[in-house]
Design a protein around this nucleic acid. Sequence first.
DNA 1: AATGATAGCAACCGCCTCTAT
DNA 2: GATAGAGGCGGTTGCTATCAT
Length: 379
Amino acid sequence: MGGKGRAPCCDKSQVKRGPWSPSEDLRLISFIQKHGHDNWRALPKQAGLLRCGKSCRLRWINYLRPDLKRGNFTKEEEDSIIKLHEAWGNKWSKIASQFPGRTDNEIKNVWNTHLRKRLVSKNSCGDDQSKELSSITSTSSSSSSSASFQRSSGNPSEGAAVEFEHQSGHESTMANKDPNEHELPNSTTIQEKLDQYSPMEVTNQVRADDAKASKALTISSSFSSHDSSKGSSSSEGGISRPGDSLFDFTGAYETQISDKAEFEIPFESDCDFWNMLDGLVPFQSNHEPTLLQDDDQANQSSNLGLVESGKWLSYLESELGLEQTTKTEINDQDFLMKDATEKLVPENYCDKLPRPAEIDQGMDRYFEMWPPLPDNSVI
DNA sequence: AATGATAGCAACCGCCTCTAT
DNA sequence: GATAGAGGCGGTTGCTATCAT
């Protein structure tokens, strides 16, 4: 058996760690959408990511998968988690398998932060669990989730471990995880994700250094926090978007596919695009200007004036190469070998962010202008 | 307004399990 | 059957936002 004494999966000194940037996310998404994820260890290199394969896998499974259901857990879900935890213990992946769109990590966090305390407090108040379980029984069969439990929760007194038992073998994090899940939903999902990187939300959210910005972006632009009382501040600025949860695709994305299925974000797209996405948040707020080293960067810096004058759409078009066909000629290798973490966007770029609608228009045009590419299954 | 405490959650770490050779 | 590699899982950490004082 493996385990002890094994070599680490990667050289920790050679990989980027910490919060994921938007460009990294999009690289990962687009890569997996196009090529799948047969080999997590090799994926980062192929995708041009300076990340550990495990980190990529985790990021994908927990946050980027298009079938994730984000947002608050319903009372029914929470009750069912309690019930299942009672039956299975800390078998988070097993529990998560009963909640389509939920991840083991998410459930684990919910348990550790909410449910355990709830149970403890109930017990400490002299309330026995039978009361709790009785309420669970009455509600768990009708989750508000668009995709209800795969199996009926049944009678809690009869042992959920049997009732929910999976087929032998690996439990999977996803309810129907397929090791060859290359049937990634669609390109629209990427559009959705791009939409969610609404820079205005980020602007309202982010005020610190790179790491903070990245973290804040991840939280505020993508997800509605579990705890609405403490959660994302993305609404503080009065900017909210329909379907605020980036990953709230459950049951919905299939219909969305038809709308824009012909638009596929090209995996080998313009590097500037990725950098621009990073630039939608003030990642560079604390960076030294020396980051702007080459002509392109200098040009972008000079373009800040356009942004300032409100000509964002034009700027975006320019940056996306929508004005020139030559930018579409960038090849795979250019993209693959480009460090996703590299920043080309000027400092304080995002302090001058445009209105979201303009972003959306720009993104829409981006997707319209980029035709689907042949499916190159091998890099 | 400033500061410390607490809550929430994304990400990492190390071990385990499975599979291929 | 032994071994190595990769994926997966559960526990834990570290960072940020929010609350309380």
